[in-house]
Amino acid sequence: MKPFFFGPPSRQLFGIYHDAVGGGAAQGAVLVCGPFGQEAIQAHRILRALATRLGKVGYHALRFNYFATGDSAGECEEGSQSQWVTDVHAAHLELVRLSGASRIAWVGLRYGASLATLAASSIPSDLSELVLWDPVVHGSEYLTELSESHAAFMQADLPGWKAPVSQTEALGFPISASLAADFRALDLTANGAVRARHVTLVRSQPETSFADFERSLAGSGVSFESVLIDTGATWKSEEAMNTFYVPVNVLNAVVSRIQGAP
C-alpha cells in the first residue's frame, strides 16, 4: 500500500495505491471513486477493504480523494462537479501509469458512482467493467436528502437546535451555491452512453429504485446488470461515521463482477 500525492503542486490529489498481491502478472487495475462529504468518511474503511480484496485476487487498485476533499489540496468550499470529473480522469491516468495495466475497471460508490458515470462518457478506451454502487441518480433528490439528514441529526444531537433559513451545509460539509447548482443539474438518466464493456448496478437498499436509470442504461445499448444486495446500511447519517461497518457481501459481489468482466 503506497500513499502519495499526484497532480500539479497547487492542486495535488492524495491517493493510495494497492499493489496486486502475489508477484505474478496482474489481472488488471481498478480505480475506486469514493462518495462525497460525510459518506466519504463513513466509506473509507469499506473502500480500503475493497482495495485489499482486489489486491488478493490479482488486481492493482487506486483509491484517491477529489480536489478539496479528504487529504487532497483545496478547501472544502472549492469543490465542484466539473473539477471532480476531471480528477477521476487524472486518477485514471495515474493508475494506468502506475500499474501498466490495459484492462481497467472503475468502482464508484454513491456520488462517486455518479462522477464515475459522468467521467466514463469521455475516456479514450472502454473500461472492462464499471460498477456503480448505490449511485446518486438525481442530484436534486440527493440535495434534499442531505438537507433532511442534516436537520434530523442536528435535532437529535443538539437539543434546541434551529434549522437555518437556507441550506449552505450538510452533515459537516459546506454546500456552496455553485455546488448546489451542480447537484441540482445532475441527472444520470440524461447522461447518455458510457464507455464500458459492462456495467453493474449495485443496489444495497431495497427501498431504493433505479428503474429510470436502468431504462436509460438499456436505452444506451451498454451491457448491464442490476443486482440487489441488501445490507441494511444507511449512507445518510452522521452516526455511521464512527463505526467499523463493512458490508462484506457487497464487496464479494463487486470483486466477482470485476473478475468476471469481459
Binding site: 468518511i41 474503511r45 487529504d71 472544502c76 452533515l171 459537516g172
Partner: peptide
C-alpha cells in the same frame, strides 16, 4: 484520531485545523 474516524477527522476538521 477521534474514535475510529480516519486522520481527516469528522467533517475533515483535522485537515482544516492542521492548515
Amino acid at each position: 484520531n477521534a474514535g475510529v474516524v480516519l486522520r481527516v477527522g469528522p467533517h475533515r476538521i483535522t485537515v482544516r485545523m492542521a492548515r
